[in-house]
Design a protein around this nucleic acid. Structure first.
Length: 255
DNA sequence: ATGGTTGCTTAGCAA
């Protein structure tokens, strides 16, 4: 079984790369973020023709998440449904038998003093609350997406320069730690304990050519599913060439 | 040389 997560930064701009990636890597599940389109504009027919089903929570212009899957989902939930007024499409959950797959696009936060940063920390707290109220750590759950948090120094090209950024700050890392403490394992880091690797490079300032990346896209899994992971890797090649997303897909393979 | 981008929507915002 293969699962991947990929912030495509506009599915329309990434259409050809998206379908080529599906065909090349044949994931059973692909969690997408930043679709930047409504459900009505999702390429339902082309996805079906490629042999996949899709669960989509769209939004015009911004955000938007989906789970593309080889088999259709048994249940789908759009948004955390926790009573909080949240107009942004950043959460979708789907069940496939006893496996729960969630695709998340955690708010970036913009700058530490911007209200968006409080929204980010609160959003991560709400995500923990969602898991605590709907699931048990003993279940098989994969929470995949763009977390906009680099967990540690191995995940950051310039840790000293970027220590105060919204992707690296201690309170952002603490919010991610708190989420993981519910019962989630960073599967890439579990499988590659000492590997320096990144999943996002800023379009600005020649981030990719200069190697200025961060690992902010994660596949988090509960213990029972994480124990079955055979390997995890980042498809850095997908960041190369013409019109790439600024994020590379992160992939986990299970025995 | 001290900047260097992209996408959505149309001049400004978001990342």
């Amino acid at each position: 079984m293969r699962i991947a997560t990929w912030n495509v930064n506009s599915l329309r701009s990434r259409n050809d790369r998206f379908f080529a990636w599906l065909e090349r890597h044949e994931p059973d599940y692909l969690c997408l973020q930043e679709l930047k389109l409504t459900e009505a504009l999702f390429p339902w027919d082309a996805v079906k023709a490629a042999g996949y089903a899709a669960s989509v929570f769209g939004q015009k212009t911004y955000n938007g998440v989906a789970i593309v899957s080889a088999a259709p989902a048994d249940d789908i939930r759009l948004g955390m449904g926790d009573g909080v007024e949240d107009p942004e499409a950043r959460f979708i959950a789907a069940r496939f038998g006893d496996l729960h797959v969630i695709s998340v696009y955690v708010p970036n936060g913009r700058t530490p003093d911007h209200p968006a940063y409080g929204y980010k920390l609160e959003w991560l707290r709400r995500l923990r609350g969602y898991l605590a109220s709907h699931h048990k750590p003993s279940e098989k759950i994969l929470v995949c997406g763009d977390y906009n948090v680099a967990p540690g120094e191995l995940d950051v090209a310039r840790p000293d320069e970027w220590a105060a950024s919204v992707l690296c700050r201690a309170d952002a890392r603490a919010a991610l730690d708190d989420l993981r403490s519910w019962g989630l394992v960073d599967i890439f880091r579990q499988r590659n304990p000492d590997l320096r690797a990144y999943s996002w490079w800023d379009y600005r300032m020649l981030g990719f050519p200069k190697g200025n990346g961060l690992r902010i896209d994660h596949i988090l899994g509960t213990a029972s599913i994480a124990a079955a992971a055979a390997g995890a890797w980042i498809d850095r090649d997908e960041r190369k060439g013409k019109k790439p997303s600024d994020h590379a897909p992160v992939v986990a393979d299970f025995g």
